[in-house]
Computed example of a mutant assay.
Amino acid sequence: MTLLADLGVAVALFASTNLDDVFVLIGFFSDPRYRPRQVAIGQVLGISALVLAALASALLSVMLAPAWLGLMGLVPVALGVRGLLTHRKDEEDDAVTGTASIGNALAVAGVTIANGGDNIGVYTPVFATSPGPRLVLFVAVFAVMVALWLALARWLVHHPALGSPIRRIGRVATPVVLIGIGVMVLAEAGTLSLIIGRAVP
């Protein structure tokens, strides 16, 4: 492949596997309990974990069973339930301490990982068949794309015309969306069947 072709593949690879992540980021940016820095750090940590997992799978030619990976779907479900339970609290109750700041960043990372379980399956064969220089290029492009994703989501939240309704709707809709993502991950990965199968003799 030429450099231009490799760039195109890297951009298409990231965009196709993270398109829905923009909406998740919009939800987090709309929630006053999450600071922009926390969302950015969490997104970077989440994408980094997915890329590292895919690289490890490619190098070791070993992949986790999708059903076990699907257990990550419990993270957005838990966050969504928490969001619904705390929705009516005053914003003063949401003051961010140093510990909460780390927790929020990890929460964003957890949702990113759970929502990106398919990323590993897509990235692994591409990484496994790519030479070192191409892998470096892919990682660099992914880093730039993460920044663009964050900028796009934040821009939409603060858009003069779209920002106000997005923030208003986002605070209410985000918990529901997170629960939906979690259930979808659990179902598509076969985790629900795994849990039911182990629970029922």
Rank of each mutant, 00 (worst) to 15 (best):
R37E: 02
A199K: 00
A109S: 12
P175L: 08
V44Q: 04
P36K: 00
G80F: 00
L150N: 07
A114M: 08
V185F: 13
L60V: 13
M145N: 11
T17F: 11
S61L: 15
F142R: 05
F29A: 05
T97E: 08
A187V: 10
F127G: 05
A15T: 15
V9I: 14
A40V: 01
A67D: 08
P175M: 08
A95G: 05
F138S: 02
V24T: 13
L192S: 11
W68H: 06
N119S: 03
L152N: 12
I120L: 01
A58S: 14
V75K: 04
T129A: 11
D93E: 06
V96A: 06
R33Q: 06
A140W: 10
R198P: 01
H158E: 15
P76N: 02
V176R: 08
G163F: 03
T2D: 15
L137M: 04
L106A: 01
L13P: 03
S48G: 13
L162W: 04
P76R: 02
G116F: 00
P76S: 03
G27C: 13
P125K: 10
V200Y: 02
D31V: 09
V200D: 02
A109D: 03
V108H: 01
V39M: 03
L148D: 11
L45H: 04
P175H: 06
L19M: 12
V144C: 08
V200H: 03
V185A: 15
V176T: 10
I102Y: 09
G98A: 14
V51S: 09
V39P: 00
F127I: 10
R134S: 06
S30W: 05
N115Y: 05
A140Q: 07
